[in-house]
Nucleic acid binder design. Structure first.
Length: 269
DNA sequence: ATGCTAACCTGCGCGC
DNA sequence: TGCGCGCAGGTTAGCA
């Protein structure tokens, strides 16, 4: 489900309902997620949420005794529900809040996670990540430098969280289309000028997707339960075999690293 | 080091 | 109507 815009949308959606609230009870119905939910999460009971933030596709919930870290995996969602709403088959975790609402984690495929770190500690999952794509640290010069000597395809290169975080399959496809770059091009062969264009398009497409509340393909919903509206603005993702919206050529679909890649053979060189 | 593959898990849509 | 197959927004472990 979620790439950076969907995670940011979720974080913004739940923040007003969580900030400064007491977590009264933590209910874990299914601890077997991507990594097992640790017993320490129970320590959240009675704690107050001091702050929310996002790093890469992780949502950090800070309290005085530690930080809970959500990851939504492929099919996870976090939303506020009423306590009377019955928990469904894949509603794995509830946080009962002081305001009477319930923060409910739903994740059919269970590739998501809820991690825990003590104050002043960094999760191993966060320490080796690349820069945030919307930050000033993410520049064409950076990508150019990191890519020299690499034969790896540009698409898998920008999807590597050690290079830059938050760019998943949807927005990798879209930003390469917008930048006019073929996804299979070796990252090490791309010029600084073309990286200028790519970095600019990555930043723009992510920012626009956040404005639209993310991309809803099947089941993504923000914290308020509403879908995102960016899907209608996708140029290539999920459109293999259809016509290019710019030049009407038939879009090609290939596989890179077990992921679908779609591109326009005319617009992307 | 680099880069590719398989794996984790469930649901859905398609072709037969 | 049912069955088998392939595919899906992410990430990491393991291998050559």
């Amino acid at each position: 489900m979620p790439e950076l815009p969907e995670v940011e949308t979720t974080k913004r959606g739940i923040e007003p309902w969580l900030l400064n609230q007491r977590i009264e009870r933590v209910v874990v119905r299914q601890p077997q997620l991507r990594w097992p939910v640790v017993d320490e999460l129970k320590l959240l009971e009675g704690q107050t949420v001091r702050g929310l933030s996002r790093r890469a596709k992780y949502i950090l919930v800070e309290t005085d005794i530690g930080t809970a870290i959500w990851h939504l995996g492929m099919s996870g969602s976090l939303r506020l529900v009423e306590p009377s709403a019955p928990a469904g088959k894949h509603d794995h975790i509830d946080w009962l809040l002081g305001n009477g609402k319930v923060l409910r984690y739903h994740d059919p495929r269970r590739f998501g996670a809820l991690l825990w770190v003590e104050p002043g500690t960094d999760s191993d999952h966060l320490t080796h990540l690349g820069p945030e794509p919307l930050s000033d640290d993410f520049t064409a010069e950076y990508l150019f430098r990191r890519s020299r000597g690499k034969s790896q395809a540009i698409k898998t290169f920008v999807m590597d969280g050690k290079v830059v975080v938050g760019v998943g399959n949807i927005y990798a496809n879209e930003s390469l289309f917008l930048a006019g770059i073929r996804p299979a091009t070796a990252a090490g062969k791309i010029s600084l000028a073309r990286y200028e264009r790519l970095v600019s398009e990555i930043k723009q497409v992510l920012a626009r997707a956040i404005e639209q509340g993310g991309t809803t393909l099947r089941d993504f919903v923000g914290g308020d339960g509403k879908p995102g509206y960016f899907a209608q603005q996708l140029f290539v993702y999920g459109r293999g075999g259809e016509q290019c919206k710019v030049c009407s050529s038939v879009l090609k679909e290939i596989r890179q690293g077990q992921r679908a890649t779609v591109y326009c053979p005319a617009c992307q060189r």
